[in-house]
């Protein structure tokens, strides 16, 4: 690095005059010019930023910017068109590198969407089911002297020993023990236990439940109860041999009333369809097998028939 020192030897008493260095002066001017230029550019940039920021989209500078963008637009369009194949090539190559992670991500999305689709399907089915409940409640088949208390099934006790469900209405809603429970398809069972907010419903498929029923076509009476050794099959018991019952006949609740007493179940609630009829010489009664209308494995909501006459 040049130090700008004179090579002339200094001697005591001799005045030595330093020659002003032109290089040094030139460098000073250069540094000044450099500072001025960069200072001016920085200030100009700051002014532009301030004006652009303060004027916003409708300001005076936006017009300048729009004009500049318009002038530059052909170049931008040209670059866009020229670079499109390169961009496509890059995207293609990039997609190869990210294919594995993309596949995993898409797999997760598919799983998520599948779950949502299942939930939506459930919601649709539930909606249709609830609409049917609503239609049944407001329809002509709904028994008189009762009001409907719709309830969601919130629990299913272990089915190994008992056939029951827990519903989300209770005594606070007017539900009492022995209130019948139905769906639009038919009879479900009977309320056997009530709390203020919930109730337990013994299903028709429980061993303990028996319902007086008649053949809708022939009026042949009998008692519907659970068929031992099966899960959801019922039998129409106590049908005398002289009564006529055929396969395909519809069974409904009998709804008897005698000596001031009445059946717990209103008359005419569908129970099921006769699927087989048989009899032996030794038996006193016919053997009538019944398939219930209600699918007890898919109970989501039910209707409790609350008697209007509270003294019942």
């Amino acid at each position: 690095m040049p130090r700008n020192r004179s090579a002339r030897p200094a001697a005591l008493g001799v005045s030595v005059r330093r020659v002003p260095s032109t290089q040094h002066t030139s460098r000073g001017a250069s540094a000044l010019r450099r500072r001025l230029v960069v200072g001016a550019l920085v200030v100009l940039a700051l002014v532009l930023i301030s004006l652009s920021f303060r004027s916003g989209a409708d300001g005076s500078l936006s017009g300048v910017q729009s004009a500049g963008a318009t002038v530059l637009r052909p170049f931008a369009v040209g670059v866009e068109r020229v670079s499109q194949p390169f961009r496509d090539a890059y995207n293609w190559a990039d997609s190869l590198f990210t294919a594995r992670s993309d596949a995993e991500q898409l797999r997760a999305q598919v799983e998520d969407l599948r779950q949502r689709a299942i939930q939506n399907e459930f919601a649709i089915q539930e909606n249709a089911y609830l609409r049917r409940l609503l239609g049944y409640r407001d329809g002509p088949r709904f028994p008189r002297d009762f009001r409907a208390e719709a309830a969601e099934v919130i629990a299913r006790p272990d089915g190994a020993f008992t056939q029951a469900v827990v519903i989300a209405v209770g005594s606070d809603h007017g539900v009492r023990v022995n209130d019948p429970v139905v769906t639009p398809d038919g009879l479900v069972g009977l309320v056997t236990h009530v709390t203020p907010g919930t109730a337990r419903v013994q299903l028709l498929t429980d061993q303990q439940l028996a319902v007086p029923a008649i053949d809708l076509r022939t009026q042949a009476p009998g008692i519907v109860r659970h068929a031992r050794g099966t899960r959801e099959t019922l039998v129409l018991d106590r049908v005398r041999k002289q009564e006529i019952v055929r396969v395909g006949d519809e069974l409904v609740t009998a709804g008897w009333r005698a000596s001031g007493f009445s059946s717990l179940y209103p008359k005419g609630i569908p129970i099921g369809e006769v699927t087989s009829v048989g009899q032996t010489d030794t038996d006193l009664y016919q053997q009538v097998q019944v398939t219930p209308y209600v699918d007890f494995g898919r109970l989501d909501a039910v209707i409790v028939l609350v008697p209007l006459d509270s003294s019942r």
Binding site: L44, A45, L48, S52, L61, Q65, A69, L72, A76
Partner: peptide, 13 residues
């Protein structure tokens, strides 16, 4: 900044 319609002067600075 003109091409991207960004705040004018930002990239310049």
């Amino acid at each position: 900044d003109l091409l991207t319609l960004d705040t004018l002067g930002l990239t310049s600075l």
